[in-house]
């Protein structure tokens, strides 16, 4: 009996190896995650023989996975750094960037917070710790709780570049590991301020105007909203034409793909 089971298993394994299904492994940014998940669902519905897995572990991890060759697509909310390109080249990988969507970085506060509008300078000072009370920017007398993404995050890098001018965020800042976690901290902390991707704004948090401009698909698209950035998917080399990976990597160019990007809350690259 045991022998029979063993042979059966072996036969099954061999048969499986003969037509092993195709896989696309995606790793990286928690901002781009919802887009990648929606694309995966969309692609797998039409091509059930392809298994697409998505993990959301941060842009930095996406880049590392690409360098180590443990993913097919690295989703990143920032461009790859020189050091990452170099590491990739040393490992024989050639990362190619595909911009799949545009994203603003809304500054989030609790909806009960009366403050509506901040300048980039004020935000920078808040995160530096120089402004530490909401009353200094026209709010009630409450100490500000700053919440930032961890340094592995592409969203953090964008924020550090566009708002902080590479200055170090103050010591009191709280660091959390994902966009969702930022939203959760802000929606439960009345005095909090944080930042996340456009797709993560819902009615439980309030996005502030920055320099008088409200973060919306239109203002991001026109470049009026000051804290905006493209979202990337990196592949190792340009995908072979006609391959599943190629089809997957061109979804964002199709009308369906753009509708998905838009409905999730981001800005399609060829919008309007």
């Amino acid at each position: 009996m045991k022998k029979q089971i063993l042979t059966a298993t072996a036969a099954l394994a061999l048969a499986g190896a003969a037509h092993a299904s195709e896989t696309i492994v995606i790793d990286g940014s928690t901002t781009v995650g919802p887009i990648a998940k929606a694309f995966a669902e969309y692609y797998m519905a039409a091509n059930p023989e392809v298994n697409i897995t998505v993990s959301e572990s941060g842009s930095g991890n996406g880049a590392k996975a690409m360098v180590n060759g443990t993913c097919d697509v690295a989703i990143m909310s920032r461009p790859m750094k020189d050091s990452e390109f170099k590491a990739a080249a040393d490992h024989g990988a050639q990362p190619v960037a595909h911009v799949v969507a545009l994203d603003g970085l809304p500054i989030l506060v609790h909806p009960s917070n009366p403050v509506q509008d901040l300048t980039v300078e004020q935000i920078r000072k808040i995160f530096l710790g120089e402004i530490s009370n909401w009353s200094q920017v026209g709010g009630p007398n409450k100490e500000i709780v700053t919440i930032s993404r961890d340094t592995n995050s592409g969203t953090y890098e964008t924020f550090a570049g566009l708002v902080m001018n590479k200055e170090k965020i103050g010591e009191k800042c709280e660091y959390v590991g994902s966009n969702g976690a930022i939203r959760q901290r802000v929606q439960t902390t009345p005095a909090a301020i944080g930042y996340a991707g456009l797709g993560f704004v819902d009615k439980t948090v309030k996005a502030l105007k920055v320099n008088g401009i409200y973060p919306s698909p239109e203002t991001v698209q026109t470049g009026e909203y000051p804290i905006a950035r493209p979202l990337f998917m990196y592949t190792n080399g340009y995908p072979k034409l006609g391959s599943s990976l190629y089809q997957f990597m061109t979804i964002h160019l199709t009308e369906d793909g753009q509708e998905m990007v838009e409905e999730i809350g981001f800005v399609p690259v060829t919008a309007y």
């Binding site: 394994a13 092993a20 896989t23 897995t53 998505v54």
Partner: peptide, 24 residues
């Protein structure tokens, strides 16, 4: 399993696919 096996979205695997594919 965070870094070695787990993903947030994926299909149910067949037994031989466990050798090469990650899983939720």
């Amino acid at each position: 399993i965070i870094f070695t096996a787990a993903v947030s979205v994926g299909a149910p695997l067949k037994i031989w696919e466990t050798l090469s594919q990650p899983t939720p």
